[in-house]
Design a protein around this nucleic acid. Structure first.
Lengths: 180, 180
DNA sequence: ACCTGAACACCGTTCAAGT
DNA sequence: ACCTGAACACCGTTCAAGT
């Protein structure tokens, strides 16, 4: 379908705002992202931003969408199940503040809740793949959920890498059934 | 030690502010607690509040201290290990938003981090007591940590009571060793 | 010691007015 | 369609000035 020139220009502007929003969010989560800041940095009036994004929350969620898309775009790890999961938790830890902010926002903002549900599904798919060879089929779905919930719990702790790994390894051993 | 009249009056004022802060925090977490709101409701100038609490974060943490003290003051459950843990998660869920806000604040505010560490310790003590009869001593400490981390992960999900219990039960069965 | 009023430097959002 | 400037209703914090 052929695009009108006006549509292209609009998309460029959206792109410009979104890119800057991603930069701010990466730097300091939801707190650092303010409509005022975006407008000032881009040389716009504050109100102009609202022509492209209906609210701060919407802009944040749009930026999150980008951040998490890039996170999932990375190459899948090649280790065993535990190696892959550790790698996933590492990736998630890299956007820890953003994830927790999105989680918090999802309590009041539908867009945030929708994106979060989507992210959950993608993690669940990855976990299912990683764990399918090791876990009995009838336990698989519940183990997947449990691992994800535990990983989210770990995230909130903001532990040093090493300690985080210790907890993760222990929980995985228990959840995957530690008869080896 | 005998108290001076001035000291008593000061404590009464602190008490008044703190009580109102607790009310606001209970109603809507960190977001709902604003210095302006406290001042207006109590008929003070905004700046006056700073005579008793150095910042909004400090006032929030002081209010949290109250909320969690009351939470721990409740009667200990009488069920088995799993019953007691379920009961604890229930209590924690009752102050879910406050707990998550405190967790978030603990990333930047020392007072918050200190209180959170204290709360962790109290939960760990409770869990240790509940699990000591069921879990081998050398695994106990790590199981305690894992259960608490899992519970925190559950908290962030804001699931309906029933679904939360399902996940908790599954994780506990795995972590406590499900050979029964 | 305690409190006020004003100020500073921010917010998100709305809206009439311009181009 | 896109953008501005001003306005509204908030924030947290500081500080000189009062009692």
């Amino acid at each position: 379908m052929p695009r009108k020139r006006a549509e292209l220009e609009r998309e460029e502007k959206v792109e410009e705002i979104l890119e800057h929003a991603v930069r701010l969010v990466r730097a300091g989560g939801y707190e650092e992202l303010s409509i005022n800041r975006v407008a000032k940095d881009l040389g716009l009036a504050r109100a102009a931003v609202y022509w492209y994004f209906p609210s701060r929350a919407d802009l944040f969620v749009a930026a999150c969408e980008r951040v998490f898309a890039e996170m999932f775009a990375g190459p899948p790890s090649d280790g065993g199940a535990i190696g892959r999961i550790r790698w996933g938790v590492d990736r998630l830890d890299g956007v820890c503040e953003i994830y927790l902010a999105l989680q918090q926002l999802s309590a009041t903002e539908q867009v945030a809740a929708t994106l979060l549900a989507d992210i959950h599904q993608r993690f669940q798919r990855g976990l299912r793949e990683a764990l399918a060879p090791t876990v009995e089929p009838e336990r698989l779905e519940r183990v997947v959920d449990a691992v994800l919930i535990f990983a989210e719990g770990l995230l909130g702790r903001r532990l040093p890498h090493e300690e985080r790994d210790r907890h993760l390894e222990f929980a995985l051993a228990a959840l995957l059934g530690d008869e080896r």
